[in-house]
Nucleic acid binder design. Structure first.
Lengths: 133, 133
DNA sequence: GTGTTTGTATCAATGTATGATACAAAGTAT
DNA sequence: ATACTTTGTATCATACATTGATACAAACAC
């Protein structure tokens, strides 16, 4: 879990933050769960502990985790504390979606392809009735 | 059209490339259409012409436009020329989708909210019957 | 051919990401 | 209480990425 790619164009901090955010969003990590220590995770990933610490601090700024020296980092909430108007959130998400959809369209995917792909990923985040096989 | 934000964390090159990709994906730009010259667009956006040129070169590498000195840049195709196995494309898109969905989930959006948001954006890229009101 | 228009190459300056290392606070054992 | 360990934090250096200023080269227009 939480694999990163050193050769990715995405910065390591972003990859780590993103991976943990997803784990929280999917309920793999719930409030109360302890995250690995910065040294532990850094060693596992083969990177510097500062990089992990920076990711943790960003997660803390978002209200998702809580960090204290000597104790470690713990999942605090399953939702982010809003730091921008809801309208702005929708705007930002809309832009992200547009980018992904354009990407898919230019790669030649059909609307059906995309719908299926999104449905698959959605089921893990918003477990629906009818999906619990 | 094609607004960029100098204060965005996203590099200018990415913003430009992304904006033009979307315009092509949405059919606002079709094969044969001329893009503004690098100087023109750079002046409009208030940035350096090199930054625009870099974006154009990336679009050319993707097979979307064709560039020649003295003549300018022209839209070449409405699809990208695949430079990775189809499987890899799906993998990449899946990762992007996961990120956006996690973002939405953590912001507190419901599955219905998200479905609606995606449907709105999709209709511009894959015009469906029943959406032409 | 001459001049203009267009993209390209080169290089400098600045910012960003990552890492090495030292520090400080909280916990743990005795 | 004190020593020691565990944990996150701060500082600084380095490498890389991003943007821009400027000079160059190819294609076009006349």
């Amino acid at each position: 879990m939480l694999t990163i790619r050193l050769d990715s164009p995405l910065p390591l901090v972003d990859q780590i933050r993103s991976g943990i955010r997803q784990a929280i969003a999917m309920g793999e990590l719930v409030p109360g769960d302890a995250l690995p220590t910065v040294r532990q995770l850094a060693a596992d990933l083969g990177i510097n502990l500062n990089t992990v610490a920076r990711a943790y601090r960003q997660l803390e700024a978002a209200g998702l985790v809580s960090t204290r020296r000597g104790r470690g980092t713990v999942v605090e909430a399953a939702r982010e504390t809003p730091r921008e108007p809801a309208e702005s959130v929708l705007e930002r998400l809309g832009a992200q979606i547009r980018t992904v959809l354009a990407d898919a369209r230019l790669a030649g995917l059909s609307a059906a392809d995309m719908k299926r792909l999104i449905a698959e990923e959605s089921s893990a985040l918003w477990p629906e009735k009818g999906d619990n096989r």
